[in-house]
């Protein structure tokens, strides 16, 4: 498997450390919206229990890439995918794989906080479990507390769990969405510019919690903010016009990018 991936990768992936387990590998992943070919042969290997950042100019396919990982891409009418995404060595696009079970293992947080507007804080967090048939109140309570704790929100909302989810502040709403995604105990958390709608203080909170999450989860974060990528991620992938240009340890990639495109992007020459 490993050999295959290396052989067909457009750019060699240089990771100096000894082998660490991989959580997600994309293999020659291509994606389309109708005739618009937005991902071209992306082969990326994401390490378990690390934070991987995906950077690149607007429209280069970052969101599409992570939406392909949990099979959200195919929900858009006319959207197509080819290639493979391996989650622990099993292709999530293999025949007979239920996309619902993939999404349960790979959670997602979106750019704009999107709590369920008619549900309370509690129900928002419990939604994933409840709507999959969990009825045991004690277990739900525990999951809600645990997830809100992980999302650094418990202390702020523990007395108003009955309040509507959309009455929280923007930053709290985004942390609520993180808690909601964590409550179903996924293995991977995909975050699509989770801080772009938030102020610096709320952003700092979320960055702190992301760092905290990597003990238990594998995190993939899309961001426009280089400093953020540098602060939170262990590995960084640079995407340009649907192609993976460079991928490596964040410090390496930021300090000595091997590709000229990467360097020009990092120094703000375009994008």
């Amino acid at each position: 498997m490993d050999k295959e991936l290396k052989a067909e990768n457009t750019k060699p992936i240089l990771i100096s450390r000894p082998v660490e387990p991989l959580k997600i590998q994309t293999d020659k992943l291509n994606a389309w919206f109708g005739n618009n070919h937005v991902l071209k042969d992306v082969s990326l290997r994401i390490k378990e229990n690390h934070v991987t950042a995906i950077i690149g100019p607007s429209g280069c396919g970052k969101s599409t890439l992570i939406r392909c990982m949990n099979r959200m891409h195919e929900l858009v009418p006319q959207a197509k995918v080819s290639g493979a995404v391996l989650l622990d060595d099993a292709n999530v696009y293999a025949k007979g794989v239920d996309p619902v079970s993939v999404r349960r293992k790979i959670g997602m947080v979106f750019q704009k906080p999107n709590p369920f507007p008619t549900m309370s804080v509690y129900d928002n967090v419990a939604a994933g479990l409840k709507l999959n048939g969990e009825r045991d109140h004690a277990r739900l309570d525990r999951a809600v507390k645990r997830s809100l704790d992980l999302a650094f929100l418990w202390e702020e909302v523990k007395h108003e769990l009955d309040k509507s989810g959309s009455s929280l502040s923007g930053g709290q709403q985004q942390r609520l969405c993180i808690a909601r995604a964590l409550a179903v105990e996924p293995e991977v958390l995909l975050m699509d510019e989770p801080c772009s709608a938030l102020d610096p203080i709320a952003t700092a909170k979320i960055e702190e919690l992301i760092t905290n999450l990597k003990d238990q989860y594998t995190v993939v974060i899309v961001t426009h903010n280089m400093q953020q990528a540098a602060r939170v991620s262990d590995y960084t992938a640079f995407l340009y016009l649907g192609q993976l240009i460079e991928y490596g340890e964040t410090t390496n990639l930021f300090e000595n990018p091997t590709e000229e495109l990467t360097e020009r992007y990092l120094t703000g020459k375009f994008g």
Binding site: V100, K105, T118, A127, G128, L131, A181
Partner: peptide, 23 residues
């Protein structure tokens, strides 16, 4: 976005439609 959030939680489409979208 509300629909997306429900689907991303691994909720079946009919369940998401009834319990999240319809509500």
């Amino acid at each position: 976005s509300v629909r997306d959030a429900a689907m991303a939680l691994g909720i079946r489409k009919w369940r998401a439609t009834i319990s999240v979208v319809l509500s």
